[in-house]
Design a protein around this nucleic acid. Structure first.
Lengths: 354, 354
DNA sequence: CACAATTATGTTAGCGCTATCATCATCAGG
DNA sequence: CCTGATGATGATAGCGCTAACATAATTGTG
């Protein structure tokens, strides 16, 4: 059946089988097959299941393909096989090293297995995340990696309806239906605050910016630790929706001075901010940690080099990326991952600033 | 003619039209069309060419699609239309802010036009770039953005053979067949060196790391400026293949001291390094700029905050991303961009460290 | 040595969409 | 009214690939 060459008396000049190369000018599998004198499926196998093709023939196919400049068409492959070999990865920001390092972990895990990451930046907005999810679902990703657990209702619907394997990164979920890899941000906040209390600080401030769920969880940890010590004071908490930056950290020191706060220590919700604060303290001659202790979060590279060096909490973001990707690979293989909730812990790093 | 429905006595029971939903369980255009009581092509148009469908019908289609959780299949669309709406972007590193900001410029230009970026990281290796080009060509990108002009012969062959519009970023090409957007790295090196000479420094060192083409171009600029002044001395040039980092910058200060160099100024090939150097100078009590002047390149955010603040050259990387993407959009539309070689210039920033 | 098992390759159909052309209203203008 | 232009929708084929099954060639085994 089907439209074969002439079949007798079909109108001519219409079925002119193009000599080679597709519409786009690129060579196709059929072109390679014809040149080698075999069928297209064998070319397909030479690329996708090489162990099914005799070594000598396979080599001949690959050589011919190379010489013709043939490159498999991923769209056709995805359509025919219903596997896109693509993983959608949504992160809040790309200027924040934390997520870039997570991405590196994801890449290092996925690439050797032939999967590619489709990266989306949500700018910390669940609405933008929803839009990106919708967009990226068009690519029929075989899996999805999301940052955090704060998604819109519509996004949740999409995710559950389409049933693509999904893993949440950075924060931990208690819901047994969801998979997550991360660390407890709340514990991080508590860890640092406890350290400051142990060091003898009693009037500890907290500067929260961006106000994303992870920052707020750190703030919770801070608050709980101080409440337990009977030292929590709302007046020592600053909340700003602005994105984090060195500049903002410096500005916060100016503001603290201008407001004449009584803080003997300030816990900044991340290292960018804390570094800015240290720079500005140096500039203004504020002695750290004697006059004011400064603490950060995340342990960025520069934090080990500032004067004084910055006390912080290191988050295992590269490992989070790796493990999240590994979990996803298991799911995409139809296997159940060893754990559905993986806490990779935190490392407290005491340095000179406290 | 051509293969019509049954043509008479075709084997029956083969044509069982599946009730709805594809193999993957996802709703298809045909499902939506059936539900609305129209043909699939109209659904396609409602999404891709909305102006061709009556507003009321279009709304009904979109609503139905939404309620069915329908998401267009990008692979099928790409296959049928020969347009992937995807642009491959290759950058050397993701941990280097310079390229991340370029990416942001690219995104901001491409997304509103419906194009998506497929990001690849070459780790400064032309061989890895070649591999990525091959991989990403499988996605039949409608355009390609490359960093630099240093590609393998095979990569060049691929690019010219497949004739996807390509724009080179960061460096400038004189070849009239290639498109490029960037700034003169050589001029940047020259600019800084001239500044140091004007400031009275006579024994100016240069620290080159990574040794990518852009770094070497800066080194060339430095060398030419010093040669013109009759002050070039190979002994004051350090070349290290290691990746740039704050740590390495600090280590270089130690090394300079250990080697007892006579430099009165050191031009580091980028700000990471220079920042590390400033940190270490502070630590070791080396007075900058009196004892040793320090200069960087790129103007990273922290460079305005270090003690002392860092003299550097700002590169227009965000603008480079935007303009490169804009140029590519023109090409993909079949238009000739206004210029094939766009020099966006540099901004010299004199600060306290020199 | 017949038969099943295994290995290597081929045939067919169809993935879900869109390009292309065809059809059918509708309507202005003579 | 008829003509042709315009606008809205539909029918058909096919993009380039792979799943699923079919076939042919080879091997082992009792």
């Amino acid at each position: 059946m089907t439209t074969r060459g002439g079949d007798g008396t079909a109108t001519p000049a219409v079925k002119t089988r193009k000599p080679r190369s597709s519409r786009t000018g690129r060579a196709t599998m059929a072109d390679v097959a014809e040149r080698v004198g075999i069928s297209a499926i064998t070319v397909s196998r030479a690329f996708k299941r090489p162990e099914l093709v005799m070594p000598e023939l396979r080599q001949r196919i690959l050589d011919t393909a190379q010489s013709m400049g043939y490159v498999p068409n991923q769209a056709a492959s995805a359509l025919a096989s219903a596997r896109s070999m693509t993983v959608a990865v949504l992160i809040p920001s790309m200027t924040n090293m934390v997520f870039v390092e997570t991405l590196a972990g994801i890449h290092d895990m996925l690439l050797p297995r032939g999967y590619r990451a489709l990266i989306g930046v949500t700018h910390y907005s669940p609405e933008e995340e929803e839009r990106l999810i919708r967009t990226y679902l068009q690519f029929q990703p075989d899996g999805i990696l999301l940052t955090g657990t704060d998604h819109t209702a519509v996004a949740r619907t999409y995710l559950s309806a389409l049933a693509s394997p999904t893993v949440h990164m950075m924060e931990l979920l208690d819901d047994p239906d969801s998979l997550s890899v991360g660390c407890s941000q709340e514990e991080g906040g508590r860890l640092m605050t406890t350290h400051l209390l142990e060091r003898g600080y009693r009037r500890i401030g907290f500067v929260a910016v961006q106000l994303d769920p992870r920052t707020l969880a750190r703030l919770d940890g801070y608050r709980h630790a101080l409440e337990e010590a009977g030292l929590y004071d709302e007046a020592r908490v600053w909340r700003l929706p602005d994105p984090s930056s060195i500049h903002l950290g410096a500005a916060m020191i100016d503001r603290l001075m201008a407001e004449n706060t009584d803080c003997d220590a300030v816990f900044f919700c991340n290292d960018d901010l804390a570094q800015g604060a240290l720079f500005q303290c140096q500039r203004r001659g504020i002695r750290v940690p004697d006059q004011l202790a400064v603490a950060g979060f995340n342990d960025l590279p520069a934090s080990a080099w500032t004067t004084p060096t910055l006390t912080t909490v290191a988050t295992p973001r590269y490992a989070i990326g790796r493990h999240a990707a590994a979990m996803l690979l298991d799911l995409m293989d139809g296997k159940e991952p060893p754990q559905r909730r993986l806490d990779l812990g935190l490392t407290f790093i005491a340095r000179e600033s406290t």
